[in-house]
Nucleic acid binder design. Sequence first.
RNA 1: GACCCCAUCGUCUAGUGGCCUAGGACAUCAGCCUCUCACGUUGAGAACACGGGUUCAAAUCCCGUUGGGGUCGCCA
Length: 463
Amino acid sequence: MSIVTRFAPSPTGFLHIGGARTALFNWLYARHHGGTYRLRIEDTDRQRSTKEAIDAIVEGLKWLGLDWDGEIVFQFARAQRHAEVARELLAAGKAYYCYCSAEELDQMREAARAAGKPVRYDGRWRDRDPKDAPAGVKPVIRLKAPTTGETIVHDKVQGEVKVANDQLDDMILLRSDGTPTYMHAVVVDDHDMGITQVIRGDDHLTNTFRQLQIYQAAGWEAPSFAHIPLIHGADGAKLSKRHGALGVEAYREMGYLPEALRNYLLRLGWGHGDDEIISTEQAIQWFDLDAVGRAPSRFDFAKLDNLNGHYIRETDDARLAREVAERLGRAGDATLLARLQAGMPGLKARAKTLKELAENAKFYAAARPLTLDDKARGQMTPEARGVLTALRAALAGAANWVAADLEALARGFAEAKAVKLGQVAQPLRAALTGATTSPPIFEVMQVLGRDETLGRIDDCLTA
RNA sequence: GACCCCAUCGUCUAGUGGCCUAGGACAUCAGCCUCUCACGUUGAGAACACGGGUUCAAAUCCCGUUGGGGUCGCCA
């Protein structure tokens, strides 16, 4: 049987990091098994679902490179089908009308809580004659769930998990307005879409018991389940906006590469021996549910940064130059693009994010005269200016404007002056980059070219 | 509160009864490299939550405790 997985987010907000990982695992599992991976938008909550959220989710998935098969399924569009199944269950005696009001239900919950008893519907309409129905009240349809025995989930990650049926109440399938509840819609859709493997967050584990009861009532074969542990914030608490429950577009803005985020997310809750750097191709080859851990993990930006730095160094210079030019607001500037690309080898070893990369590349994009930062200005002592003046004269006669020759020239110059190379290089760095740290300065000179280099030195000397 | 899940260095993890004086990675600290900062590289410190069992042998199996998390909606 061919594998079918799905990612089913509700469009009530952006695609957060936990959702992204769930999508990744579903995608990897399907690709690994040569199956199908589908996307379903769970928009049955009309109040909270928004077009913006749908767009953010779709864009986020595309950016992450998690392409889905077939058309997107919108759950709300299937409301008729959900109602139909609920009515079939009703006709088969597997469900019943319940006329309880919201107030009545609230009282029931209050009383149970006060008495220290489990909070659940007491089934008062379960066996009551429909003739008792109060006039003018639109009923909900509830599942007539088993009251004895137990319901067992054979979870691919959590193992065998069971609960006594008397712990579960008769859940609502169809609301009084005729729309389906989440529990019901999920089951009907997963069945109709032929989903064979459900992979979702741990928070759905206890919901699974109830969903299993619907499968049983409908006489359908349930899919296999795998509940993956949640991702927590750096402090171990539930992920909140403050720690990293950001939309994936926020990670994009912060300068993370999709391949780095994929690698990081993969290693959160899944392992393959001592492997850390795992390409997507390898991930597809290796990924399976048996290696998914059962403990929740914490989101760690330091590790993501390290991974991202690795992927940046692996990325080709042209792509990086384009990213930087775009971040600098100069996407179409061919001259800048060429210069950035030439300077990229020295730049990319020094950045953990594209944002940092762009920040470090600013001096290549800056127009003369440069503004030196405080530390750089501090290095422009009278002695340093003297060294620079003499060096400038020596530089003017350089035959080949290439890094190696320029370095040799500078070394010879320093030796002749009986100063350390650093005493030459640092003032040069300040003049050329406006900072005290930068890529190797002779590489910078080559990238900048003779005229720009000499010009920047002159700017400093005459200032 | 009831029910369910989880528990190895600060963090992510390897480990499926002997190969564990517990391995790797990130982070931290120290050294090397060096024109700065990085990259790279070498090394150091750092963990089986606790208490009982089972067994010749337990990080690995069982029970309990503690601690974390999740669910209990006419939300998803």
